[in-house]
Simulated scan of single mutants.
Amino acid sequence: MYIFTTASILFGAALLEIRGQPVNSPSDNSPRIRCDYTFFKDAQGWFKLHARPATWHDAQAVCHSEGSSFLYPANEVLMDTALHLMTDASISTIHTSMTVKLESVTLNEEGVFLRAGLNDSFPFICKYKVESLLLNECGTVDKDYQFYNGTAHCYKLHKNKANWFKAEAACKAEGGQLAIINSQKEAAVIVDIFKNNPADQIPGHFEFGKGVAFIGFRSLDEGHSWTTINNETLSEAGYAEFCPGEPNNAAGNEYCGSVRRTGKLLDDPCTRELLFICEKKPEEHDN
């Protein structure tokens, strides 16, 4: 192990003196961005410590998939936040950043930066910061949730692709659910969501992946029938219009539901990584 600098030791030592004081503590009265992130008032952001060790690149990918960024404690407030989370979880070392020599920079429980290999696995912290703490009309500070008059519901197109199960978990963490199309009017809303997110604004190289998103239905009997995550058949939910020739189970394991830019439904492998659409009612938020 290599200690970064004498300054980093002094910086960490000074923070250890601060940690006994209520300089930066979790707030229970703030709006939540996700139920699995904790808001710290002084840091003006939400943070999540992932206790399961990961390599540096995998840790970056996890934060990105959650719509957040990798925490590098560049100032005293962020350092105090990191040490607070580490202490609460009994974690001694986390990934933080990368050096110009392509080495990982870790942070230990004493506030000291150390070098490690990028392929070494450590816990890590993701952070989510927003420009404003004011709730929007969707009952969240997440500006990506947009209210649509056609259904009086809010929707968010996640551009960070995920498999169906991770997509469902992400929507729940944000206080919503994978979108369910209940009518032609709601199908038109889905079309509008895609129009507001043109393909050239979505990361990736393949056009197909920019025009299909997971939503809240799947098959539990290998494609013989389809139900929503609310345990309704598509007909009971109010919309069952598939693309021509679909569902066709072309890959032999297409048991999760998706929607094209046209508003028509598809079957896709549950493990395929796609865009996904979350839906929430305006009153579904935490204060």
Rank of each mutant, 00 (worst) to 15 (best):
F4T: 12
T6G: 09
S8W: 10
A13T: 05
A14D: 14
P22N: 12
S25T: 14
S25I: 14
D36L: 00
F40M: 03
A43T: 02
A54D: 12
V62I: 15
G67C: 06
S68R: 08
S69R: 08
S69D: 11
P73R: 08
E76C: 01
D80Q: 10
H84K: 05
L85W: 06
L85D: 05
L85C: 06
S92R: 15
T93P: 02
H95E: 12
T96I: 14
G111C: 09
I125M: 00
Y128L: 09
L133T: 08
T140A: 09
K143N: 10
Y148L: 05
Y155M: 01
K161Q: 10
N163Y: 07
W164H: 07
K166I: 00
A167V: 01
C171A: 01
A173W: 04
E174M: 12
Q177F: 09
A179R: 07
I181N: 01
V189E: 02
D192C: 00
K195Q: 10
K195P: 02
A199H: 03
D200Q: 13
Q201W: 04
P203R: 03
P203E: 10
H205N: 10
R218Q: 12
S219Y: 00
W226C: 03
L234T: 02
Y239A: 00
C243R: 14
G245L: 09
N253L: 12
C256M: 08
G263T: 04
L265E: 04
L266E: 09
P269F: 01
E273N: 11
K281E: 15
H285F: 15
H285E: 11
